[in-house]
């Protein structure tokens, strides 16, 4: 019943941030089409270790599509050719026997390569640190049901909040823009009364940090939303623009 395929892999190998990287070509055989893409890379690594070579370094953790750790630019798509999933949920049945697969790291000035396919995404943390929160301390909260929130607002906030911070939006964007990521957080909190209080301050601070970190300018190509594993909507970017412009006009 189990179907297996043989593949040629072109994998980006880069020693560290400053080193020059290049593609290496590997062959893997007998990959079960039921296995995930990362399991296929596990097989490759096992093979490399057995040959006494250093395995390919890539980020991964939960392997169920929620932690946002896995990345990989596969055949021209962040998280591979399937839609609305992360690399760890990409299964080998999406590929054909004999295919050549090109695997690259996220390429963006904001995400420097650490080793091979592993990149540094701490810029995202810095953007959140700039304002992606409600400024409340533990202990001061009122009863959870004290403020009514329309279901539609809560649902829309949830859709924005489903961002996993993987960086696919930046990786997909020809401008290396982080607007979808920033707008998802700004939207989530702007839609909820709890976050509304400091919406202007948040939009200002997060955009300023995003710009400071060298992410590009959004030109609304929509590649980010098209490649987002959680289908975060482009309309969040319009909301961020609105929040930001409003904030600046108030200054």
């Amino acid at each position: 019943m189990e179907k297996t395929i043989d593949l040629t892999l072109k994998v980006w190998r880069q020693r560290d941030r400053k080193a020059k990287g290049q593609f290496e070509t590997y062959n893997v055989k007998g990959i079960s089409t039921d296995s995930s893409f990362l399991e296929m890379l596990d097989v490759l690594n096992e093979q490399l270790i057995n040959e006494g070579k250093e395995p390919v370094v890539f980020d991964h953790d939960c392997r169920e599509g929620i932690c946002g750790m896995c990345s990989l630019y596969i055949n021209g798509h962040p998280h591979g050719p399937d839609s609305a999933i992360t690399t760890c949920q990409l299964h080998m049945r999406k590929f054909k026997n004999g295919d050549t697969i090109t695997i690259e790291p996220w390429r963006s000035a904001g995400f420097p390569v650490i080793r091979d396919l592993m990149v540094d995404r701490t810029a995202y943390d810095q953007i959140i640190a700039a304002g992606g929160y409600t400024s409340i301390n533990v202990g001061g909260a009122q009863d959870a049901n004290a403020v009514l929130i329309p279901k539609t607002d809560a649902d829309e906030a949830m859709d924005a909040a489903s961002c996993i911070g993987c960086g696919a939006c930046v990786a997909a964007c020809k401008n290396g823009s982080a607007m979808l990521f920033v707008s998802a957080k700004v939207s989530q909190l702007a839609l909820l009364p709890q976050g509304r209080v400091e919406a202007a301050r948040r939009a200002r601070a997060m955009v300023a940090k995003m710009d400071e970190l060298g992410f590009g300018n959004c030109t609304n190509t929509g590649a980010c939303a098209a490649e987002c594993p959680k289908s975060v909507s482009l309309s969040n970017i319009a909301r961020l623009n609105r929040e930001f412009i409003k904030a600046k006009l108030q200054d």
Partner: peptide, 22 residues
């Protein structure tokens, strides 16, 4: 119970009913 209060204040988008309650 405090946890739920705290999380709502943080902006955690818990599921809600049409009346706006959790």
């Amino acid at each position: 119970n405090n946890i739920i209060d705290q999380c709502v204040a943080q902006g955690v988008p818990f599921a809600r009913e049409y009346g706006g309650l959790l």
